[in-house]
Design a binder for these strands. Structure first.
Lengths: 126, 126
DNA sequence: CAGAATCCATTTTGATACTG
DNA sequence: CAGTATCAAAATGGATTCTG
């Protein structure tokens, strides 16, 4: 067994690090733009400008920023065609597609409970 | 058939409204604090102060704000005990529990792909 | 204890201009 | 076309104070 344990250093230091990493990923990815981008990509490959159109309301800057983040975590592949003008295509990776199941679930949930939610909101707002 | 259609007003005005509402809900709920609160509640009922401890790193203000939002959409129930000092308990409603499946899915995903993601990030950061 | 309200620093965001 | 940089405006978040 390979151990990273040193005297006095409990080996669940690894677990704590993993937890804080998990939390970091969770916090970064659980935001509306990331979700909407993942949803938009679905099974397709899309260019930057296509994504800009698909994800309604996203600004140039937010799109770039979130694409970088998703690429950094390996949720999307970025493929640059060496042409002029440049053509850059984005595709979900395996982890990205796996997360899509979650995002799809939330989309379904939203539509399923739309009535409930709208009613609740009206009640709350008096 | 009951229709809301008037002359000149296409009946998919309803659909558009529903879509924009769905989008609003989606955007509000797809944020890390809401997710973490839902995850913390799980099957349990928790008090404000308990939630504050469970959801690591959340501030008093963020907790109140997100609890209001979730209550407004009917994802949680807020029960005030008429005691002094006050005791306020929060519980997931049916729609809230349904959404928990999504949140759980994301938690599972995070842990499942932790290795993938960490490696991808290291690669990206050169 | 729960939470509303205020103030203030920080962050986020959008618009715009610039580059390969 | 895709992306970076910049700057002002807007939103967010935290600390603190005050209330029932």
């Amino acid at each position: 067994m390979v151990t990273k344990q040193f005297k006095g250093l409990p080996e669940d230091a690894d677990l704590r690090r993993a937890d804080s990493l998990a939390r970091e990923i969770f916090s970064d990815v659980a935001n509306k733009w990331a979700f909407l981008i993942i949803e938009a990509l679905g099974e397709r490959t899309l260019r930057f400008s296509e994504l800009r159109n698909e994800v309604e309301g996203i600004s140039h800057k937010m799109l770039t920023q979130n694409l970088r983040m998703l690429e950094r975590y390996g949720l999307i592949d970025r493929h640059v065609h060496p042409t002029v003008p440049p053509r850059v295509e984005y595709t979900l990776t395996e982890p990205g597609r796996a997360l899509r199941a979650t995002v799809d679930g939330m989309c379904g949930w939203t539509h399923q409970y739309l009535g409930h939610i709208e009613a609740a909101r009206r009640r709350f707002d008096d």
